Amino acid sequence: MDKIAVLIPCYNEEKTIEKVIEDARKALPDAVIYVYNNNSNDRTAEIAAKAGAIVRNEYMQGKGNVIRRMFREIEAQCYIMVDGDDTYPMESAPDMVDKILHHNADMVVGDRLSSTYFTENKRPFHNFGNSLVRTSINKLFECDVRDIMTGYRAFSYEFVKTFPVLSKGFEIETEMTIHAVSNNMQIENVVIDYRDRPEGSESKLNTYTDGFRVIRTISRLYRDYKPLHFFTVMGTILAFLAIVFIIPVFIEYWETGEVRRFPTLIVCGFTMIAALQSFFNGLMLQNMAISSRRTFEMQLNGLHRKKMSLIYKNSDDNDD
């Protein structure tokens, strides 16, 4: 088991990957640096290997697929994940590692939005999207995570080995945040400086396509982790629509003694039934979510024991 593992997912980052590796080595001289090449068609893998990183490949395209592979293969007490585009300062890494190893944090977020992001980033829709996602998640999940979409994070062993990677692309950061918040894991924020990509380096993030994927991921995870809230909102909306459309029918019946709009009456009746079903579905799914949380806590306990045994084994091997 490594003490510190630096994880760098890469796709066509030949212009910056060498500097990122060098900065990581300076900031964390004891860390093992892994570069996961995701079908790059430039010299990313070659340059990373010459710079001294351990280079591995993930052939399924997408950042989520790369992270799934990294988390599955690497065993470490602390993981630092950073993009290979040289937009994040590795000087902040020791502080992030310290919070994992000595302050019981499960995830440390490299917070760009509280420092230079809005001045350095030249893509205004990215700025708006980051603010929107941050506000939405903090309101929906009642938390205080200051940068949801950052690619610069530190993780504990327990987080990495319990995180179910379901997303394939850039919405993976949103999924990480919600997983940690919903499972009551300790999250810390470290303010970092952000610098825009150097000239000639292009972002792989599509503002609109990936933005819609992030919004869809938030909705899905809100439904999965807070089903009672989600289905109560859905039921309330349906009940409100049923009541609004049934009121004219009742007024007409009160005045004439006749029901002239039977289709409206029937549709409103079924809509109200759907509202009740939505509420009771939320209750049942909430009980299932609570049961899943109990199982998760037991899994965490088992992983902690496994980690400690690996640490002791490494210590004994080093003594020998």
Rank of each mutant, 00 (worst) to 15 (best):
251 I>Y: 02
69 R>M: 08
101 L>E: 13
185 M>F: 10
189 N>R: 09
94 P>I: 11
138 N>C: 06
203 S>D: 03
66 V>Y: 07
270 F>S: 05
210 D>T: 10
80 I>T: 02
248 P>Q: 11
159 F>Q: 03
30 D>F: 00
300 L>R: 12
116 T>L: 12
80 I>L: 15
288 M>Y: 04
29 P>Q: 13
318 N>M: 14
84 G>P: 01
303 L>M: 07
111 D>S: 14
307 K>E: 13
300 L>C: 14
246 I>V: 09
145 V>S: 11
218 I>K: 13
79 Y>V: 09
47 I>G: 04
228 L>Q: 13
200 G>T: 12
272 M>V: 11
78 C>L: 09
131 S>K: 06
11 Y>C: 06
45 A>P: 07
287 N>A: 11
287 N>I: 05
260 R>Q: 08
11 Y>I: 00
299 Q>N: 13
96 M>E: 00
141 F>T: 05
133 V>W: 03
200 G>N: 11
148 I>V: 14
201 S>E: 06
175 E>P: 07
279 F>M: 12
49 A>D: 10
305 R>H: 07
207 T>C: 12
74 I>F: 13
68 R>V: 00
319 D>K: 15
29 P>D: 06
198 P>H: 01
190 V>P: 02
221 L>G: 06
179 H>R: 03
55 V>C: 07
287 N>K: 15
41 N>S: 15
55 V>W: 04
115 S>G: 02
173 E>T: 14
157 Y>K: 04
234 M>F: 04
174 T>S: 12
16 T>Q: 01
255 E>P: 01
15 K>T: 09
17 I>K: 09
211 G>N: 05
85 D>P: 08
177 T>N: 14
51 A>G: 06
233 V>D: 13
196 D>R: 01
278 S>K: 03
208 Y>A: 10
152 Y>L: 02
215 I>R: 11
153 R>H: 10
132 L>I: 15
256 T>K: 11
114 S>W: 08
51 A>H: 12
131 S>N: 09
189 N>F: 00
308 M>I: 04
137 I>H: 02
57 N>A: 06
279 F>C: 07
220 R>W: 03
162 T>A: 08
13 E>F: 00
62 G>L: 09
1 M>P: 12
36 Y>L: 08
149 M>C: 13
87 T>L: 03
125 F>Y: 15
19 K>P: 00
291 S>E: 15
286 Q>A: 13
73 E>Y: 07
90 M>P: 00
291 S>D: 13
152 Y>M: 08
296 F>G: 08
205 L>R: 01
